[in-house]
Design a protein around this nucleic acid. Structure first.
Lengths: 137, 137
DNA sequence: CTAGAGCTTCCACTCGCTGGAAGGTCAAGC
DNA sequence: GCTTGACCTTCCAGCGAGTGGAAGCTCTAG
């Protein structure tokens, strides 16, 4: 298989697959013309990577997951550990975004959004009028 | 004010403030020794930037917001537009993360996490056993 | 006069790709 | 045999939003 075929199979762009080779996630052979030659196993690894990335795992997590996947003597605890840490990162990010969302939607609702210059959004970002001295503890 | 003072006032690292000057968000004067000299207005703009960034606005959004802030003839509708678009991006990101979270926490719960190699997390990422042919439409 | 803190610039690195240029290779059609 | 176009190769640059570090200048206190 050439890179184009495995790109279609895995759903990853050819550029991304080349990049994954660069960083050592796949090691396709080369045919005499210099083209990369992917075997079934390579295609499978790439699909695995695509799914792991879609779940938001970092490239380094993916590297570990692939290693565990290839290790028949792995303990599922190791996999679970990685997944749980990732889950915590996701939860943290959701919490951050949700907090932004709360503030932002409050400000958006408070803004009339017309031709006049008065704007609670800018007022909040500027925080000029005495709010500056508000103790936040 | 030197950069260290304004860093404390705005809560931004000095490195970040230099970067903001690089990209034209603040334009501090220079004193004869080459040091940046920040006025009240600069400090105020930097604090504004810190708050806007904390709400997740992109640098380009911040640039627009600062311009609107400085324009006394702005229409609040323009500000609201930027904020609403940002809110949509946040909602989209939360939705993506939540979807990841659902799948991931399902898999984590399904994994015993012990010394044995069997692992539903890896099984899902590999998706070997006939799930591959599952129509997803 | 010296030590240390603070300031300067510049370059490289992060993460995970993505775009594009310049050029080699292959298969089909004439 | 030749051309065309699709495919492949490498390499370099850039995204966003900074961060780290090196080398060197300036200021202030003792």
């Amino acid at each position: 298989m050439n890179i184009g075929d495995v790109a279609i199979l895995s759903g990853l762009p050819a550029k991304t697959i080349r990049y994954y080779e660069d960083i050592g996630l796949v090691k396709p052979l080369r045919s005499s013309n210099g083209y990369r030659t992917f075997c079934e196993r390579d295609a499978h690894r790439l699909a695995f990577l695509g799914r792991a990335r879609a779940l938001g795992f970092s490239i380094e997590d993916c590297r570990s997951l692939l290693a565990l996947y290839g290790d028949e003597k792995r303990a599922s605890a190791e996999v679970k550990e990685i997944a749980e840490q990732h889950l915590q990162r996701i939860d943290k990010k959701i919490a951050e975004l949700t907090e932004m969302r709360v503030t932002l939607s409050f400000l958006v609702d408070a803004c009339t959004g017309d031709h006049r210059p008065d704007c609670p959004i800018l007022a909040d970002l500027a925080m000029k009028q005495s709010d500056e001295e508000q103790p936040n503890q």
